[in-house]
Design a protein around this nucleic acid. Structure first.
Lengths: 264, 264
DNA sequence: AATCGGTGTTCAATCTACTGAACAATACCC
DNA sequence: GGGTATTGTTCAGTAGATTGAACACCGATT
């Protein structure tokens, strides 16, 4: 498999056609994942296994591009990333339509609704509509969440092919947990996926936050391109009823159908 | 000046310590600036003056890092950028505090308030609080705006040193315009800046959108690091009154003061 | 059909960006 | 205060990324 000439392979994945770019991306990711969001040259060099001198060069170039900023001794993500992220979102017509629909929907207009996107084995929240600010979520746009811990995540993986699911969650795999109700094993997740496929929506019962339930549906992908999107409603378990849930699922599905059709 | 050995210098700025990174950043920017958000390899190669084969390598590396996505024949910005942008914003405690304050402020809680950041000669909107969804702004988080066209922009440049302002807006410079009321020359802008410095807030009278007025104040920068932030309220000219404006400015200033103090 | 303008991909030679060790400059601690 | 362990920067040699021409491909035109 491995070519005998390609001896260079350590730390970062296999050789890239433009290693400097791959490494620069790794720098950005390291900064994003760092708790404080600030790392020094040496930190990065050590963590990523890149020689100091090379790291220095990368940082200089990244700073010039405003993708990172110098803050005294250490480095942090730069403002240009906000711009680029926003540029990405502004191209997603679905987000605009999402807002419009939520505002005029009979039931959803009063709820907290979110639109999310599958990204590997995580979910990214793209936009949030807040009907009644009484139940304000602490999560923000752009936040990541493991798929097994939220209804949107489960709704989205349920759409994947079985062999992809198997690759992502092999039998016996332990899942990250946040509450006592969180799914703990890949088997549990796959059992739920079967149910989700039958019902056409996913349910989350205090699996990420105690006292909170979620409903989610996938947006049918219209064609090959584009990421898979999902919609979710969040409600307090205390005030949640099955009848209300049925209404919300109905509206979520309607919105999903309309988002799936390029015509709107 | 130019070293005889450094003959390579065309298209992109001077030589960089890691050219591949600089070029990759240029690719991202080109995609963000492109109206459709989608460009082909040849498009990028031509536009940026990078050989096709090199561009291909860059794109492959960027794709592997999920910073861009392949969409059939052409390329678009990738989801990782949303993540990175969000990571940047999540580190700005100011945004969290901004939301909290708006919710409980007597006057502002009913208005459309935004927090923005100076980025060169533009302003980037970081977050938006919407008190009454009746007047929903079309602008999104992350959007850019020339400083001369919005109140926050003017409030933020007013904080800069005179020589920086002079460098950014030399006498005789023509400014971009969007309505009949937009400032047209650097002189007009500098005259307003003098007023803004006296009053401590900036006013915008239908300069970017007909029928809409804005008020803005700068957030005092607490120390050397960190970007300069600004706050603005948007109102309909039809329903705007000077008394209401005075109240809003008072609350904006209070919020700005609290954001400026690291203690909250 | 056959041509043409366009796309993206391949490959070996060259020029250059990366490396690593030695350097200076700072913070730390006994 | 001197020693120690950091930090980031410098520099010349080499490993290797970049290059451009030639390639194969597709979809329009004529």
């Amino acid at each position: 498999m491995a070519d005998s000439r390609t001896t260079r392979s350590e730390g970062l994945g296999a050789s890239s056609p433009a290693p400097a770019v791959t490494r620069a991306a790794a720098v950005l990711e390291a900064l994003a994942d760092s708790p404080s969001g600030r790392l020094t040259l040496s930190d990065l060099s050590r963590e990523l296994g890149i020689p100091k001198s090379s790291t220095s060069n990368l940082l200089l170039a990244l700073e010039e591009a405003r993708l990172i900023t110098r803050q005294g001794a250490d480095f942090a993500l730069g403002r240009k990333l906000v711009e680029l992220g926003a540029a990405y979102l502004s191209r997603l017509d679905e987000v605009q339509e999402f807002y419009k629909y939520c505002e005029q929907a009979p039931t959803l207009s009063g709820e907290t609704v979110r639109i999310a996107m599958l990204d590997g084995d995580h979910v990214i929240y793209l936009a949030r509509y807040e009907g009644h600010p009484a139940v304000r979520l602490t999560s923000n746009i752009g936040d990541k969440m493991p798929v097994s811990l939220c209804s949107v995540g489960k709704a989205l993986v349920a759409q994947l092919h079985d062999h992809d699911i198997e690759a992502m969650f092999p039998d016996g795999m332990e899942l990250p947990t946040m509450t006592a109700n969180s799914l703990r094993t890949a088997e549990q997740l796959k059992a739920q996926i079967a149910t989700i496929r039958k019902q056409g929506f996913a349910f989350e019962d205090e699996e990420s936050t105690v006292g909170v339930v979620c409903l989610a549906v996938p947006v049918p992908t219209h064609g090959a391109h584009g990421p898979s999107l999902g919609l979710s409603v969040t409600a307090l378990k205390a005030t949640y009823s099955e009848e209300q849930g049925a209404l919300m699922v109905k509206e979520l599905k309607e919105l999903a159908r309309s988002l799936g059709n390029p015509m709107g």
